[in-house]
Protein backbone atom coordinates (compact mmCIF):
# COMPACT_ATOMS: atom_id res chain seq x y z
CA UNK A 1 0.00 0.00 0.00
CA UNK A 2 1.39 3.36 -1.00
CA UNK A 3 1.44 6.17 1.55
CA UNK A 4 -1.14 8.83 0.78
CA UNK A 5 -0.21 10.91 3.78
CA UNK A 6 3.26 11.03 5.25
CA UNK A 7 4.23 13.08 8.26
CA UNK A 8 7.83 13.08 9.47
CA UNK A 9 9.12 14.75 12.64
CA UNK A 10 6.45 17.39 12.44
CA UNK A 11 6.58 20.17 15.03
CA UNK A 12 4.45 23.26 15.32
CA UNK A 13 5.12 26.06 17.78
CA UNK A 14 2.60 28.92 17.94
CA UNK A 15 3.95 32.44 18.40
CA UNK A 16 7.25 31.01 19.54
CA UNK A 17 5.72 29.70 22.78
CA UNK A 18 2.98 27.12 22.62
CA UNK A 19 4.17 23.77 21.32
CA UNK A 20 1.04 22.31 19.81
CA UNK A 21 2.63 19.45 17.90
CA UNK A 22 5.80 17.80 19.09
CA UNK A 23 7.91 15.71 16.72
CA UNK A 24 5.02 13.75 15.28
CA UNK A 25 5.55 11.07 12.62
CA UNK A 26 3.01 8.80 11.01
CA UNK A 27 1.83 7.68 7.61
CA UNK A 28 -1.52 6.76 6.16
CA UNK A 29 -1.78 4.24 3.36
CA UNK A 30 -3.92 4.70 0.29
CA UNK A 31 -7.52 3.78 1.01
CA UNK A 32 -6.96 3.68 4.72
CA UNK A 33 -9.14 5.37 7.32
CA UNK A 34 -6.86 6.79 9.97
CA UNK A 35 -7.89 8.45 13.21
CA UNK A 36 -6.14 10.94 15.44
CA UNK A 37 -7.57 10.31 18.86
CA UNK A 38 -7.18 12.73 21.71
CA UNK A 39 -8.84 15.42 23.81
CA UNK A 40 -9.38 19.01 22.73
CA UNK A 41 -6.12 20.87 22.58
CA UNK A 42 -4.05 17.72 21.95
CA UNK A 43 -2.86 19.06 18.58
CA UNK A 44 -5.15 17.09 16.27
CA UNK A 45 -6.57 20.11 14.49
CA UNK A 46 -3.13 21.65 14.14
CA UNK A 47 -1.91 18.52 12.34
CA UNK A 48 -4.92 18.63 10.00
CA UNK A 49 -4.37 22.33 9.33
CA UNK A 50 -0.76 21.69 8.40
CA UNK A 51 -1.75 18.86 6.08
CA UNK A 52 -4.42 21.01 4.43
CA UNK A 53 -1.86 23.82 3.92
CA UNK A 54 -3.69 26.20 6.27
CA UNK A 55 -0.73 26.35 8.63
CA UNK A 56 2.99 26.15 8.03
CA UNK A 57 4.91 23.66 10.17
CA UNK A 58 7.70 24.97 12.39
CA UNK A 59 9.83 22.00 11.43
CA UNK A 60 9.49 18.56 9.88
CA UNK A 61 7.79 17.57 6.66
CA UNK A 62 4.31 16.61 5.61
CA UNK A 63 3.29 15.12 2.28
CA UNK A 64 -0.10 14.45 0.78
CA UNK A 65 -0.23 12.23 -2.30
CA UNK A 66 3.54 12.56 -2.45
CA UNK A 67 3.48 16.35 -2.59
CA UNK A 68 5.19 18.41 0.09
CA UNK A 69 2.76 20.84 1.77
CA UNK A 70 5.44 23.50 2.07
CA UNK A 71 6.94 23.23 -1.39
CA UNK A 72 3.73 22.97 -3.39
CA UNK A 73 0.69 23.91 -1.33
CA UNK A 74 -1.39 24.48 -4.46
CA UNK A 75 -0.69 20.95 -5.67
CA UNK A 76 -1.71 19.57 -2.28
CA UNK A 77 -4.95 21.54 -2.31
CA UNK A 78 -5.92 19.95 -5.61
CA UNK A 79 -5.71 16.50 -4.03
CA UNK A 80 -7.45 17.02 -0.75
CA UNK A 81 -10.90 17.53 0.65
CA UNK A 82 -11.28 19.30 3.96
CA UNK A 83 -14.26 19.36 6.28
CA UNK A 84 -13.48 21.44 9.35
CA UNK A 85 -15.20 21.20 12.70
CA UNK A 86 -16.74 24.62 12.16
CA UNK A 87 -19.78 23.70 10.00
CA UNK A 88 -18.30 25.95 7.36
CA UNK A 89 -21.31 26.39 5.13
CA UNK A 90 -22.70 29.75 4.09
CA UNK A 91 -26.03 30.38 5.83
CA UNK A 92 -27.03 33.03 3.33
CA UNK A 93 -26.85 30.70 0.35
CA UNK A 94 -28.99 27.73 -0.50
CA UNK A 95 -27.61 24.25 -0.10
CA UNK A 96 -27.29 23.99 -3.85
CA UNK A 97 -25.41 27.28 -4.14
CA UNK A 98 -22.99 26.20 -1.45
CA UNK A 99 -22.14 23.13 -3.49
CA UNK A 100 -22.10 24.99 -6.80
CA UNK A 101 -19.60 27.43 -5.32
CA UNK A 102 -17.39 24.66 -3.97
CA UNK A 103 -17.50 22.83 -7.32
CA UNK A 104 -16.27 25.97 -9.04
CA UNK A 105 -13.57 26.59 -6.48
CA UNK A 106 -12.28 23.14 -7.39
CA UNK A 107 -12.59 23.94 -11.10
CA UNK A 108 -14.82 21.01 -11.97
CA UNK A 109 -15.71 21.01 -15.66
CA UNK A 110 -18.92 22.93 -16.33
CA UNK A 111 -20.76 19.98 -17.83
CA UNK A 112 -20.41 17.75 -14.78
CA UNK A 113 -21.02 20.29 -12.01
CA UNK A 114 -24.78 19.78 -11.96
CA UNK A 115 -24.45 16.03 -11.99
CA UNK A 116 -21.87 16.00 -9.21
CA UNK A 117 -23.84 18.40 -7.00
CA UNK A 118 -26.97 16.29 -7.39
CA UNK A 119 -25.00 13.15 -6.67
CA UNK A 120 -23.50 14.31 -3.38
CA UNK A 121 -26.81 15.85 -2.30
CA UNK A 122 -28.43 12.46 -2.81
CA UNK A 123 -25.66 10.77 -0.89
CA UNK A 124 -26.27 12.91 2.19
CA UNK A 125 -30.03 12.89 1.71
CA UNK A 126 -30.50 16.62 1.21
CA UNK A 127 -31.86 16.67 -2.34
CA UNK A 128 -35.29 17.88 -1.16
CA UNK A 129 -33.87 20.81 0.78
CA UNK A 130 -31.30 21.86 -1.82
CA UNK A 131 -33.10 25.08 -2.76
CA UNK A 132 -33.65 26.28 0.80
CA UNK A 133 -31.35 28.76 2.45
CA UNK A 134 -28.90 26.99 4.75
CA UNK A 135 -30.00 29.21 7.66
CA UNK A 136 -33.16 27.08 7.77
CA UNK A 137 -31.13 23.86 8.17
CA UNK A 138 -30.56 22.00 11.41
CA UNK A 139 -27.04 21.44 12.73
CA UNK A 140 -27.01 17.89 11.43
CA UNK A 141 -28.11 18.99 7.95
CA UNK A 142 -25.39 21.62 7.84
CA UNK A 143 -22.81 19.01 8.75
CA UNK A 144 -24.08 16.72 6.01
CA UNK A 145 -23.97 19.57 3.51
CA UNK A 146 -20.45 20.47 4.60
CA UNK A 147 -19.39 16.86 4.16
CA UNK A 148 -21.05 16.74 0.74
CA UNK A 149 -19.06 19.84 -0.28
CA UNK A 150 -15.85 18.10 0.76
CA UNK A 151 -16.67 15.12 -1.49
CA UNK A 152 -17.64 17.01 -4.66
CA UNK A 153 -14.28 16.82 -6.37
CA UNK A 154 -13.63 13.24 -5.23
CA UNK A 155 -10.45 14.10 -3.35
CA UNK A 156 -7.77 11.46 -3.01
CA UNK A 157 -7.38 12.32 0.65
CA UNK A 158 -10.24 13.55 2.79
CA UNK A 159 -9.57 15.36 6.07
CA UNK A 160 -12.38 15.34 8.59
CA UNK A 161 -11.86 17.38 11.72
CA UNK A 162 -14.18 16.10 14.45
CA UNK A 163 -16.80 14.98 11.93
CA UNK A 164 -19.51 14.31 14.52
CA UNK A 165 -18.73 16.93 17.14
CA UNK A 166 -21.91 18.09 18.83
CA UNK A 167 -24.25 16.03 16.66
CA UNK A 168 -27.12 13.93 17.94
CA UNK A 169 -26.83 10.15 17.94
CA UNK A 170 -28.90 9.65 14.82
CA UNK A 171 -26.92 12.14 12.72
CA UNK A 172 -23.70 10.75 14.07
CA UNK A 173 -24.63 7.31 12.83
CA UNK A 174 -25.54 8.71 9.43
CA UNK A 175 -22.19 10.43 9.15
CA UNK A 176 -20.47 7.18 10.11
CA UNK A 177 -22.37 5.43 7.36
CA UNK A 178 -21.13 7.95 4.78
CA UNK A 179 -17.55 7.62 5.97
CA UNK A 180 -17.76 3.84 5.76
CA UNK A 181 -19.20 4.20 2.28
CA UNK A 182 -16.24 6.38 1.24
CA UNK A 183 -13.85 3.73 2.40
CA UNK A 184 -15.60 0.70 0.95
CA UNK A 185 -17.01 2.13 -2.29
CA UNK A 186 -14.79 5.09 -3.17
CA UNK A 187 -11.54 3.72 -1.73
CA UNK A 188 -10.88 7.19 -0.42
CA UNK A 189 -8.10 7.85 2.08
CA UNK A 190 -9.63 9.43 5.15
CA UNK A 191 -7.84 11.11 8.03
CA UNK A 192 -10.18 12.04 10.83
CA UNK A 193 -9.75 13.47 14.28
CA UNK A 194 -12.04 12.62 17.12
CA UNK A 195 -12.29 12.51 20.84
CA UNK A 196 -15.08 9.98 20.69
CA UNK A 197 -13.68 6.51 21.34
CA UNK A 198 -16.60 4.77 19.69
CA UNK A 199 -16.00 6.71 16.53
CA UNK A 200 -12.35 5.75 16.27
CA UNK A 201 -13.22 2.16 17.09
CA UNK A 202 -15.97 1.92 14.51
CA UNK A 203 -14.38 3.75 11.61
CA UNK A 204 -10.62 3.60 11.75
CA UNK A 205 -8.33 0.98 10.30
CA UNK A 206 -5.66 2.48 12.50
CA UNK A 207 -5.67 5.16 15.15
CA UNK A 208 -2.99 7.28 16.75
CA UNK A 209 -3.36 8.24 20.37
CA UNK A 210 -2.24 11.80 20.76
CA UNK A 211 -1.73 13.69 23.97
CA UNK A 212 -0.32 17.21 24.38
CA UNK A 213 1.06 17.24 20.87
CA UNK A 214 2.76 13.86 21.06
CA UNK A 215 1.75 10.55 19.56
CA UNK A 216 1.74 7.89 22.27
CA UNK A 217 0.72 4.87 20.22
CA UNK A 218 -0.35 3.99 16.68
CA UNK A 219 -2.10 0.78 15.72
CA UNK A 220 -5.37 -0.84 14.75
CA UNK A 221 -7.96 -0.27 17.49
CA UNK A 222 -8.05 -4.00 18.30
CA UNK A 223 -4.28 -4.20 18.55
CA UNK A 224 -4.22 -1.12 20.76
CA UNK A 225 -6.66 -2.85 23.04
CA UNK A 226 -4.50 -5.95 23.09
CA UNK A 227 -1.57 -3.78 24.09
CA UNK A 228 -3.29 -3.17 27.39
CA UNK A 229 -2.50 -6.80 28.21
CA UNK A 230 -5.90 -8.36 28.69
CA UNK A 231 -9.42 -7.84 29.91
CA UNK A 232 -10.35 -5.84 32.95
CA UNK A 233 -11.93 -7.45 35.98
CA UNK A 234 -13.06 -5.04 38.65
CA UNK A 235 -13.57 -6.40 42.15
CA UNK A 236 -14.99 -4.58 45.12
CA UNK A 237 -14.84 -6.19 48.53
CA UNK A 238 -17.32 -5.87 51.35
CA UNK A 239 -16.14 -3.33 53.92
CA UNK A 240 -14.05 -4.56 56.87
CA UNK A 241 -11.91 -7.71 56.66
CA UNK A 242 -8.81 -5.73 55.56
CA UNK A 243 -6.54 -8.60 56.52
CA UNK A 244 -8.42 -11.13 54.44
CA UNK A 245 -8.56 -8.72 51.53
CA UNK A 246 -4.81 -8.23 51.55
CA UNK A 247 -4.29 -11.93 51.64
CA UNK A 248 -6.70 -12.43 48.74
CA UNK A 249 -5.00 -9.77 46.66
CA UNK A 250 -1.63 -11.35 47.24
CA UNK A 251 -2.95 -14.71 46.14
CA UNK A 252 -4.56 -13.17 43.06
CA UNK A 253 -1.35 -11.45 42.11
CA UNK A 254 0.38 -14.80 42.02
CA UNK A 255 -2.09 -16.29 39.59
CA UNK A 256 -0.38 -16.87 36.23
CA UNK A 257 -3.03 -15.17 34.09
CA UNK A 258 -3.11 -11.92 36.09
CA UNK A 259 -0.94 -9.25 34.50
CA UNK A 260 -1.41 -6.59 37.08
CA UNK A 261 -3.54 -5.14 39.81
CA UNK A 262 -4.43 -1.53 40.16
CA UNK A 263 -6.45 0.04 42.91
CA UNK A 264 -8.98 2.60 41.80
CA UNK A 265 -10.91 4.25 44.58
CA UNK A 266 -12.19 1.31 46.65
CA UNK A 267 -12.07 -1.14 43.76
CA UNK A 268 -9.31 -3.29 42.42
CA UNK A 269 -8.85 -3.65 38.70
CA UNK A 270 -7.16 -6.81 37.46
CA UNK A 271 -5.62 -7.09 34.02
CA UNK A 272 -6.40 -10.61 32.97
CA UNK A 273 -5.62 -12.72 29.91
CA UNK A 274 -8.33 -15.07 28.67
CA UNK A 275 -10.69 -13.78 31.27
CA UNK A 276 -13.45 -16.31 30.55
CA UNK A 277 -11.20 -19.17 31.54
CA UNK A 278 -9.59 -17.26 34.37
CA UNK A 279 -12.74 -16.43 36.27
CA UNK A 280 -13.30 -19.93 37.78
CA UNK A 281 -9.75 -20.01 39.16
CA UNK A 282 -10.19 -16.52 40.44
CA UNK A 283 -13.30 -17.52 42.33
CA UNK A 284 -11.50 -20.49 43.77
CA UNK A 285 -8.76 -18.28 45.20
CA UNK A 286 -11.27 -15.83 46.58
CA UNK A 287 -13.20 -18.67 48.24
CA UNK A 288 -10.07 -20.10 49.80
CA UNK A 289 -9.22 -16.83 51.51
CA UNK A 290 -12.83 -16.48 52.65
CA UNK A 291 -13.08 -12.83 51.65
CA UNK A 292 -16.52 -11.42 50.86
CA UNK A 293 -16.90 -10.00 47.38
CA UNK A 294 -19.56 -7.38 46.94
CA UNK A 295 -19.24 -6.89 43.22
CA UNK A 296 -17.31 -8.36 40.36
CA UNK A 297 -17.33 -7.02 36.86
CA UNK A 298 -15.68 -8.26 33.70
CA UNK A 299 -15.03 -5.83 30.90
CA UNK A 300 -13.33 -6.07 27.54
CA UNK A 301 -11.06 -3.04 27.22
CA UNK A 302 -12.32 -0.14 25.15
CA UNK A 303 -10.26 2.55 23.51
CA UNK A 304 -11.04 4.69 26.55
CA UNK A 305 -9.07 2.21 28.62
CA UNK A 306 -6.36 2.25 26.00
CA UNK A 307 -6.23 5.98 26.19
CA UNK A 308 -5.94 5.85 29.95
CA UNK A 309 -3.22 3.25 29.64
CA UNK A 310 -1.07 5.30 27.27
CA UNK A 311 -1.57 8.79 28.64
CA UNK A 312 -2.24 8.13 32.30
CA UNK A 313 -5.40 10.19 32.18
CA UNK A 314 -9.00 9.79 31.18
CA UNK A 315 -10.19 11.29 27.96
CA UNK A 316 -12.41 13.53 29.89
CA UNK A 317 -13.68 16.43 27.84
CA UNK A 318 -16.95 14.78 26.99
CA UNK A 319 -17.96 15.62 30.53
CA UNK A 320 -16.75 19.20 30.39
CA UNK A 321 -19.05 22.01 31.30
CA UNK A 322 -20.23 24.18 28.45
CA UNK A 323 -18.29 27.18 29.74
CA UNK A 324 -15.06 25.20 29.82
CA UNK A 325 -15.65 23.98 26.30
CA UNK A 326 -16.34 27.48 24.99
CA UNK A 327 -13.36 28.90 26.80
CA UNK A 328 -11.02 26.29 25.46
CA UNK A 329 -12.40 26.67 21.93
CA UNK A 330 -11.94 30.44 22.09
CA UNK A 331 -8.43 29.96 23.39
CA UNK A 332 -7.52 27.58 20.60
CA UNK A 333 -8.90 30.01 18.03
CA UNK A 334 -6.78 32.78 19.48
CA UNK A 335 -3.66 30.68 19.46
CA UNK A 336 -4.13 29.62 15.86
CA UNK A 337 -5.23 33.04 14.72
Amino acid sequence: MENMIQVVHLTKIYSGQVMAVRDVSFSVGEGETFGLLGPNGAGKTTIIMILTTLLKPTSGTARVAGIDVRENPYGVRLKLGYVSQDLAVDDNLTGWDNLYLQANFYHLPKNIIKKKCAEVLRLVGLEKRADDLVETYSGGMRKRLDLAAGLLHEPRALFLDEPTLGLDVQTRQQIWKYIEFLRSEKKMTVLLTTHYMEEAEKLCDRAAIIDRGEIKAIDAPDRLKEAIGGDLITISFSPGEEEKQEKALKAIEELPFVNGIESRQKNYVLLVKNSEKAIPSLFQVLNETGVKVENLNLKKPTLADVYLHFTGQELRDESWSKEQAIKSAAMRKRIRG
Binding site: L78, S84, D86, L87, F105
Partner: peptide, 13 residues
Protein backbone atom coordinates in the same frame (compact mmCIF):
# COMPACT_ATOMS: atom_id res chain seq x y z
CA UNK B 1 -15.49 32.96 12.26
CA UNK B 2 -17.67 30.39 10.54
CA UNK B 3 -14.64 28.64 9.06
CA UNK B 4 -15.52 29.58 5.50
CA UNK B 5 -12.25 31.43 5.03
CA UNK B 6 -10.32 28.25 5.82
CA UNK B 7 -12.53 26.35 3.44
CA UNK B 8 -11.66 28.77 0.65
CA UNK B 9 -8.00 28.77 1.61
CA UNK B 10 -7.88 24.96 1.47
CA UNK B 11 -9.33 25.08 -2.04
CA UNK B 12 -7.07 25.37 -5.08
CA UNK B 13 -7.79 29.04 -5.68
Amino acid sequence: RIGFLNKMLAAPI
